[in-house]
Simulated assay, not measured.
Amino acid sequence: MQAKELRELLTPEGLRLLDSLPAFDQKADVLAQVAKLRKAGHSPELVAAVLTQAKLRSKGRAKFGDFAERMLFTEAGLEQATRLPVASTHAGRFRRAGLTRIADLGCGIGGDALALAALDLGVVAVDRDEVTAAIATYNLAPWPSAEVRLGTAEEADLDGVDGVFLDPARRTSGHSSTQRLQDPAGWSPTLDTAFAFASRLPTGVKLGPGIDRELLPDDAECQWISVDRSVVEVGVWFGPLARPGVKRAALVLGAHGPAELTASGDSDDVEVGDLAEYVYEPDGGVIRARLIGDLARQLGASTISRDIAYLSSSAATETPFAQCFRVLETFPLDEKRLRQELKKRGIGRVEIKKRGVDVDPAAFRKKLQLSGSNEATLILTRFRGHHTALLCERV
Rank of each mutant, 00 (worst) to 15 (best):
G14R: 01
A301D: 05
G265F: 05
T262A: 01
R16D: 10
R384K: 14
A194Q: 10
H42F: 00
I102C: 05
R326S: 03
H175C: 06
T303Y: 11
H90C: 11
V30N: 14
A185I: 14
K353C: 09
S58H: 10
P168G: 07
R128F: 11
G239R: 02
G348S: 01
A296M: 02
R229D: 14
D112V: 03
R83C: 11
T317N: 14
H42V: 08
C107G: 14
T137F: 12
P244E: 04
L116F: 09
V47I: 01
S302G: 15
Q298K: 15
A87E: 02
L140K: 06
E69C: 11
G385R: 03
R93W: 00
R394P: 13
T377E: 10
I102W: 03
G348A: 04
A296T: 06
R170N: 05
A259D: 10
H256T: 07
A276R: 05
L181Y: 07
S226Q: 04
L342M: 09
L46N: 02
T388L: 04
A389Q: 12
A198R: 06
F331T: 15
Y280N: 07
A146P: 15
L15A: 04
P282Q: 03
P320L: 00
E393P: 14
D29T: 14
A255D: 08
L150Y: 15
L51C: 04
Q80V: 11
G284Q: 00
E271Q: 15
S230I: 12
R248E: 14
T100V: 02
K353V: 06
E8D: 07
R38Q: 04
V205D: 09
S145L: 09
L21I: 13
V286S: 01
D19W: 11
S177N: 11
L342W: 06
L295W: 03
L21G: 07
A28V: 05
V270D: 07
Y310M: 05
F195L: 03
L21A: 09
V148H: 15
L56E: 01
E13A: 12
V131L: 09
V234P: 02
